[in-house]
Lab assay of single mutants.
Amino acid sequence: GTVKVQGITIKVPNPDKAYKIAKKLAKKYNLTVTRKGNTIKVE
């Protein structure tokens, strides 16, 4: 899958794990995490 952070896309082998990490970071930096299948977008 991929993770998008402010325009940066990161390929990740485990979208579930990445999503959990993204959620933690999002809370810390007051961002929104959206997930569509293997693509995770943080904005």
Rank of each mutant, 00 (worst) to 15 (best):
R35P: 01
I10P: 02
I21H: 02
L25D: 00
V42F: 12
K27T: 05
N38W: 07
L25A: 01
G1N: 06
A18I: 12
G1I: 12
I40M: 03
I10L: 08
K4Y: 14
Q6G: 15
A22P: 01
I40D: 01
I21F: 13
Q6F: 15
T34W: 12
V33Q: 01
G37R: 04
K41W: 15
K17N: 07
V42E: 01
K41A: 08
T39L: 11
V3T: 04
V42Q: 02
R35D: 00
T32G: 02
R35N: 02
A22Y: 11
A22T: 02
N38E: 05
R35A: 03
T2R: 08
R35T: 04
A26S: 07
Y19Q: 00
N30V: 06
T9E: 08
G7H: 08
A22K: 00
N30F: 12
L31Y: 06
K20A: 12
T34D: 01
V5T: 05
V3W: 07
N30W: 11
G7I: 13
K36V: 14
V42G: 01
A18W: 14
R35H: 02
I21R: 04
V5M: 10
G37P: 01
G37H: 03
D16I: 08
T39W: 11
G7P: 04
K36Q: 12
G37D: 04
P15N: 05
E43N: 07
V33R: 01
A18M: 09
G37Q: 03
L31A: 04
K41G: 03
T2Y: 14
R35K: 07
G37E: 02
T32C: 13
Y19H: 02
K23Q: 11
K11Q: 12
L25K: 01
P13F: 11
K28N: 05
V3P: 04
Q6W: 15
A18Q: 01
A26D: 00
K41N: 11
K28E: 05
Y29A: 02
T39Q: 09
N14L: 08
V5L: 12
K28P: 01
L31K: 04
K17I: 13
G37W: 02
A26Q: 04
D16K: 10
N14R: 06
T34A: 05
Q6K: 13
